[in-house]
Write a protein that binds this DNA or RNA. Structure first.
Length: 449
DNA sequence: AGGCCCTTGAC
DNA sequence: TCAAGGGCC
């Protein structure tokens, strides 16, 4: 009887797992393992932690209770488990995530002669593996995207026949209780739920995704980000199932963006907090009591700009925000309120159920003009224009900002123009967009010399 | 080396 | 139309 250890990092799925297929080639039974380290138990946002814990409970059920959950650092707890189940035939999948390399080296050293089988990233296709001809990493999306498409993506791995799960006689710790979520509701966790969501999206919304994806009032995005983050579904599976046409092409491009940012951060882990464009770290930001009041207004969705407030209230109330609203609210924080993108990015990570380091930090950097694309610093989103363009009937604003529910149509985007003035309970604007836009441009000009 | 290109914008 | 400079081949 030979045993394999399936070390699930954030790839919390069984259906198309390459490690599982590999394990079945050389072992009779499999011990599924998840290591809860302090990062996952500590400062991670409550929605993400709750979703993770629910995924683990789902896996526990699907493996007939065999899933082992260990608490500690992988390099400390793995060797003991490996020794208990018999080290001669153990295979382990590894992670190619941004910080995976250091940890993998520590784990490999701790395991000694036991092979660590590298099967790629659990949640993206290419991090660390695509470079330019001179072996340097890409810094601009479009060339990356061309290379990514040219390279192609291998199909999902399929295990042969049913798997014999075993707990290997290894003790486990209980999956923690969900943290308090308040009014936030999460989608159903786990691989089956993720695949069901994919089929729903592919049948109903994929065809006109290219036009509909920018409409926060329509709710026709895939909602798969949280499943992708935890590897409940792998992009490989989606890509192999995607088909052709404008909708699928647009979706493929979004999946490539995940890979691009994962790749950027893999090559330059420091850019999780430092500006990609080094000179931009000299940008000046507002500080002091007034700046703090403006921060508070942004966080609580009381800036007086309806589209911004709707986005921020969706974030707080749903632990999710439509992608276009992420750009609009991020632009408002950095360019209208002159506060640091890093602070906004940390706030997003704390509240978003799908908050993922590469996409979040580099999405923010892109909006802030400090990121991988060198051009857009002079683009300042106009909140009124964005509202009128992408929420033309005002339905999204009314859904999230009850003070404005009685205002019909697109007029909801400029409540200060209403004949009766700003409705009771809704705040006046914290800043004047036209003025702050000029201030922002001046500050960028200073840095650029 | 030179020339083409660059995620989603605004006035 | 504007914007500007560097990535990329």
């Amino acid at each position: 009887m030979t045993t394999a250890v399936l070390w699930l990092r954030r790839d919390l799925r069984l259906g198309d797992h390459p490690a599982l297929a590999a394990a079945q080639d050389c072992a009779d039974e499999v011990v599924p393992l998840f290591v809860l380290d302090d990062v996952l138990l500590g400062p991670a946002g409550a929605p993400r932690r709750a979703f993770l814990f629910r995924c683990l409970r789902d896996l526990q059920e699907r493996t007939g209770g065999a899933l082992r959950v260990l608490h500690g650092r992988p390099q400390d707890v793995l060797p003991d488990l490996v020794r208990r189940v018999g080290a001669s035939n153990v295979h382990i999948s590894t992670d190619a995530g941004p910080y995976g390399r250091t940890r993998d080296a520590a784990v490999a050293a701790a395991l000694g002669e036991v092979p660590l089988l590298d099967l790629g990233s659990p949640y993206a296709v290419t991090p660390g593996s695509l470079t330019k001809a001179d072996a340097s990493p890409y810094r601009v999306f479009s060339p990356f995207f061309r290379a990514w498409q040219e390279r192609g993506v291998r199909g999902p791995a399929v295990a042969e026949g049913p798997v014999r799960w075993t707990d290997g006689g290894v003790p486990t710790v209980a999956v923690p209780d969900d943290p308090d979520l308040g009014p936030v509701e999460l989608p159903e966790a786990g691989e089956r739920a993720g695949l069901a969501r994919w089929r729903e999206f592919a049948d109903a919304d994929l065809a006109d995704y290219a036009e509909q994806r920018n409409r926060p009032d329509a709710d026709r995005t895939s909602q798969l980000s949280v499943y992708l983050k935890y590897g409940c579904v792998h992009p490989r599976t989606l890509l192999s199932d995607l088909g052709e046409g404008p909708g699928p092409a647009a979706y493929r491009r979004e999946l490539a963006f995940r890979d691009f940012y994962a790749d950027v951060l893999w090559h330059a882990p420091d850019t999780a907090r430092d500006e990609v464009q080094a000179p931009m770290s000299g940008l000046s930001y507002d500080t002091g009591p007034e700046a703090e009041r403006r921060w508070e207004a942004w966080v609580t969705g009381t800036t007086g700009y309806p589209i911004v407030d709707a986005g921020m209230r969706q974030l707080a109330g749903a632990a999710w925000m439509h992608n276009r609203m992420r750009m609009v609210t991020a632009s408002f924080l950095t360019k209208d309120l002159h506060l640091h993108w890093r602070r906004g990015a940390a706030h997003f990570l704390a509240l978003l159920r799908d908050g993922d380091l590469p996409s979040n930090q580099h999405g923010w950097q892109w909006v802030a003009g400090t990121g991988t694309d060198p051009s857009p610093y002079f683009r300042v989103f106009n909140p009124v224009r964005q509202g009128r363009e992408h929420d033309p009937d005002g339905a999204y604003v009314r859904r999230w900002v009850p003070e404005l529910r009685d205002v019909a149509g697109a007029a909801v985007h400029e409540p200060w123009l209403l004949p009766g003035g700003v409705p009771t309970g809704y705040p006046e604007r914290v800043v004047n967009h036209a003025d702050e836009r000029v201030v922002a441009l001046e500050r960028y000009a200073q840095v650029r010399g």
